[in-house]
Design a protein around this nucleic acid. Structure first.
Lengths: 166, 166
DNA sequence: ACATTCCCAAGCAAATTAGTCAAGATTATC
DNA sequence: GATAATCTTGACTAATTTGCTTGGGAATGT
């Protein structure tokens, strides 16, 4: 499993898409400008997102991308999985022959750990992210670049999303 | 945050060290052979582990490495942090100027997410890993390469370590 | 027709990973 | 004290990944 800027870009773009839901298809050019991501890089990421049906596309003028499902049905883990193609880069690669044709010491540990973390990430939907105050503030600034913003700095993580559980 | 083979190697090596606790200092050459990791690569990893006091070293013949603390006081998250130096590779880098000198849309999301996952990994100690059945089986095979092993394939993750909590 | 948009593939610089190689420093043992 | 085992350090390298550019298409609303 990987958790790098690549996945971050993808989630950021998907969140941008969610925030502008209802405005018709959103062009990648818009997202690129708002989020400061290279247009061509976005195209590559969205190519993968589309293959996983996380986004739907409309070609031609007035076209663009929209969410493939409701924002409450798309989860952060899915988005990351979609763009990070090799989920598991063990030498084992699913088989149990990592070391001398036998299972290595931490084989199952890592695959299970990966699954656990994805399980966590798959509980956070784009809707959850949108509901957070700080996200809305930033989104508002991005939509209205002229206005001055308040200096509020609210954490995005509250108790309900705690990884450790209740 | 990153979760790659680099951290996996480090945890595997630390686990090997734990499993052979009580046999005096363990040489990197032993670990390299048992776990199938390049000796020189291990040296680099252990250089970092030593700087974080996760291992202690003894030079000279009969020397080697031992755990810096008890196996129940060393946590997987620490080991990964020690070898993956740049914990947070946001463009922001802790500051809130990721985009146009302002905070980007998912700034806090990712740093918080990172913290949550580390929080989880920091609950799993090397002792916890050693207590698992499958680990002991593999360790036994590694120590006695001649014997035939049972074909048991027990998952390493049980309910008590569930990421989602109770 | 034409501009706008998605789509796709090749290539590329920088960074990272995984590893090698070579030289030292320390110390137990003979 | 010589020697061998072992840690310690630094430079170097190949393969891979990341983030990005370039250059072309294909579809489609106006």
């Amino acid at each position: 499993m990987k958790l790098t800027t690549k996945g971050r870009y993808a989630v950021t773009a998907m969140l941008d898409l969610s925030l502008h839901y209802g405005e018709g298809p959103i062009t990648l050019a818009d997202i690129a400008q708002r989020q400061g991501i290279s247009l061509s890089y976005l195209e590559q990421l969205f190519s993968r997102l589309r293959k996983k049906s996380l986004v739907a596309s409309v070609r031609g003028p007035g076209g663009g991308y929209s969410l493939g499902r409701g924002a409450d049905e798309i989860f952060v883990g899915e988005v990351i999985s979609a763009v990070d193609e090799n989920i598991d880069t063990t030498r084992c690669n699913g088989a149990h022959n990592c070391q001398n044709n036998e299972r290595c010491l931490t084989h199952d540990l890592w695959s299970d750990l990966s699954n656990q973390i994805y399980g966590y990430l798959n509980k956070i939907s784009l809707q959850d992210l949108m509901d957070r105050q700080a996200v809305r503030e930033v989104a508002d600034r991005q939509d209205h670049p002229d206005k001055e913003q308040s200096g509020l700095d609210v954490s995005l993580v509250d108790g309900s999303g705690d990884l450790a559980g209740a």
